[in-house]
Amino acid sequence: MSPTDASADAVSTPLPDVGSGTCPATGEDSTTRGADRGAERSSDHEDTLDLRLPDELLALFETGQSGAGDTDAGAAEDGQQSGGDSTAAPDSRTRPDALTRPDSLPPAGYDLLDGVAEWGPITTPAGVFHLVPVRVERDLPLVWRWMNDPAVTAFWKLAGPQNVTEDHLRSQLAGDGRSVPCLGVLGGTPMSYWEIYRADLDSLARHYPARPHDTGIHLLIGAVTDRGCGLGSTLLRAVADLVLDKRPSCARVIAEPDLRNIPSVTAFLNAGFRFSAEVDLPDKRAVLMVRERSLRGLL
Rank of each mutant, 00 (worst) to 15 (best):
S104D: 15
D167N: 14
E46K: 08
R41D: 08
S104E: 12
D149V: 03
V152D: 08
G83F: 07
E166I: 05
P125R: 00
R135M: 13
E56S: 12
L158N: 14
Q80M: 06
A35F: 06
D85W: 02
L112M: 09
T94F: 13
L169H: 04
L105M: 09
A154F: 06
P90L: 09
G84E: 15
L51P: 09
W144G: 11
T63P: 03
D167E: 14
V136Q: 10
R101T: 14
N163F: 07
L57R: 14
P90S: 08
G79E: 00
T123H: 05
A35E: 12
G34S: 09
T153G: 14
H168F: 15
D55E: 14
S42Y: 07
G160Q: 10
W146A: 03
H45L: 12
H168N: 10
S43C: 11
G67P: 00
D44K: 08
L112I: 02
D55Q: 05
L142I: 06
D55H: 04
R101W: 03
P96T: 07
A159V: 05
W119C: 09
D114M: 07
D78R: 06
G34Q: 03
R33M: 13
L58E: 09
P121M: 00
G34W: 04
T165N: 10
L49P: 15
V132R: 05
T123A: 05
A159H: 10
A89Q: 10
S82T: 15
G127F: 02
G67I: 12
H168P: 08
M147H: 13
F155Q: 07
E40P: 04
A59N: 01
A88E: 12
W156Q: 11
